[in-house]
């Protein structure tokens, strides 16, 4: 009963927020709606019993990604009218492609939606007994044993992303004063401060 209410509540707000992300005119509002959508999706995960994924969603997506979006949206001077200039021009083509894809999907869902025979057993096999293993531990076990190859591979992909960002944007500008902490710390009083005796009335 309560679960059903929570589910429909989270889902309704999630869908509403997702629509508002797209339709709101101000990009900052879009990001804020996106954060609301993330929170509700996290709620849905909790209802499913996947509390680890729910917390990760909040920490990573709300805490890092959405805040980064907010920074980008506020820092970059995005001219929306310019972005939408081609909108009407490409609308018919976009709608056409969308409709064709939708019709194809509907057609093939109705005509050929049979799950693979091996799938049911595969789904059951992947999930350990919830009573024995908490789902954080279950994910950890899978990630660091069975899927360690792709886990490390994904790590390398992230490393490349980091190298790429630095290679493409870091510039050593000439004539910029840089902080030299070692020099600052090792400064002695005598290096910079000198005491002059100025006679009374003779100071300039």
């Amino acid at each position: 009963m309560y679960e059903a209410i929570a589910f429909y509540g989270f889902s309704a707000i999630l869908l509403l927020a997702a629509v508002l992300v797209i339709v709101s005119r101000n990009p900052v509002h879009s990001v804020l709606w996106l954060i609301l959508a993330f929170f509700n999706a996290a709620g849905l995960f909790v209802l499913l019993g996947a509390e680890f994924v729910a917390m990760i969603l909040v920490i990573v997506y709300v805490g890092a990604v959405a805040v980064l979006f907010l920074f980008v949206v506020m820092m970059l001077d995005v001219d929306l009218s310019e972005l939408r200039a081609g909108f009407a021009q490409y609308l018919p083509l976009g709608v056409l492609i969308g409709v064709v894809l939708l019709v194809e999907l509907i057609f093939f869902v109705i005509s050929g939606w049979t799950l693979g025979p091996a799938l049911k057993s595969a789904i059951v096999a992947a999930a350990p007994d919830a009573a024995q293993v908490s789902n954080t531990r279950a994910i950890g076990r899978l990630l660091y044993t069975d899927y360690v190859f792709v886990f490390q591979g994904a790590g390398m992909v992230l490393l490349v992303a980091m190298i790429g960002a630095i290679v493409l944007t870091l510039r050593q500008r000439p004539g910029v004063r840089k902080q030299n902490i070692a020099a600052q710390v090792s400064r002695q009083r005598g290096d910079t401060v000198t005491l002059h005796k100025v006679e009374t009335g003779a100071g300039a």
Binding site: Y147, F149, V150, G153, A154, M156, V157, V160, A161, I163, G164, V167, L168
Partner: peptide
């Protein structure tokens, strides 16, 4: 899965190299 991870590692490095 490993196909995709390998492909992305390759592609991402190549995007950066193209804009080097």
């Amino acid at each position: 899965l490993s196909l995709y991870v390998g492909l992305e590692l390759q592609s991402l490095s190549l995007y950066v190299l193209a804009a080097f």
